[in-house]
């Protein structure tokens, strides 16, 4: 899922300065699962804002709503007219949701209430960890299902650097060395010999180092609504 984290309260109140009627819009998918921007978090933020003395003094009206997905036009369309009755929409979605919502609500401004963190998993209650950079050229098949792009601090492709000690990366005592994990996993799978091969220099074209990406499915694109991000 896409993991997000709510921005500091002061940053949010700072952004809202000057607006009289604010809609807090939650997103019911990824950020809801990671407890950052779903219906519950919308309610918490709305209460916090209503209790804030600055907001109270200015008599700001706070509305609350949550839709299934802010990255999907289909779910935004039914709330467009309602949302436009507000001065501003505070989106609790990831960056993709904020952008699509912004596109669809012009001239009503949309502000982000979250920082989008990464594509990751929930490791245990209250702990999320990055697992994927969306690099566009998945190599998990040769690294035993552990991603060196997302999990090695130096994005190494040919084994651990000298900074790997007792399974821990040199960057922090809380960061496991991805290549130690790869090594252990491939050993368990009986596939250590694959580490003997030199992984060639990769083409970062399909990754985030390149131009803004899109996916175009010829079999579907004729019927789908073309998004601005489409590559063709």
């Amino acid at each position: 899922m896409i993991v997000g984290e709510r921005k500091p309260f002061d940053e949010i109140t700072g952004m809202l300065n000057g607006y009289k009627k604010v809609l807090i819009l939650g997103c019911g998918t990824c950020v809801s699962v990671c407890m950052a921007g779903g219906a519950k978090e919308v309610a918490v933020l709305a209460s916090q804002l209503r209790m804030d003395s600055g907001i109270q003094e200015k008599g700001v009206e706070i509305g609350e709503e949550t839709i299934q997905r802010q990255c999907d036009r289909e779910y935004i369309e039914p709330i467009v007219e309602m949302a436009k009755t507000y001065d501003v929409v505070l989106s609790m979605a990831c960056g993709a949701g904020v952008q699509l919502l912004s596109d669809m609500l012009v001239p009503t401004p949309v502000l982000p209430a979250l920082n989008t963190s990464f594509i990751g998993i929930c490791e245990e209650e209250g702990v999320w960890a990055e697992r994927c950079r969306g690099c566009g050229d998945c190599m998990l098949g040769i690294t035993g299902g552990i991603c060196p792009v997302a999990r090695c601090a130096k994005t190494l492709f040919n084994g651990p650097c000298g900074g790997s000690v007792n399974g821990i990366c040199e960057v922090s005592k809380d960061t496991p060395c991805a290549w130690q994990l790869v090594y252990d996993r491939l050993k368990a799978l009986g596939k250590l010999e694959s580490l003997e091969e030199i992984q060639p220099i990769r083409d970062w074209g399909p990754s985030s180092s390149g131009i803004p990406r899109g996916v175009y499915r010829e079999d579907m694109a004729g019927v789908a609504v073309e998004s601005e991000g489409s590559s063709k």
Partner: peptide
């Protein structure tokens, strides 16, 4: 970290 040290040697 566009290329790694192994790939720098190759380069």
């Amino acid at each position: 970290f566009d290329i790694d040290s192994m790939q720098l040697i190759q380069t």
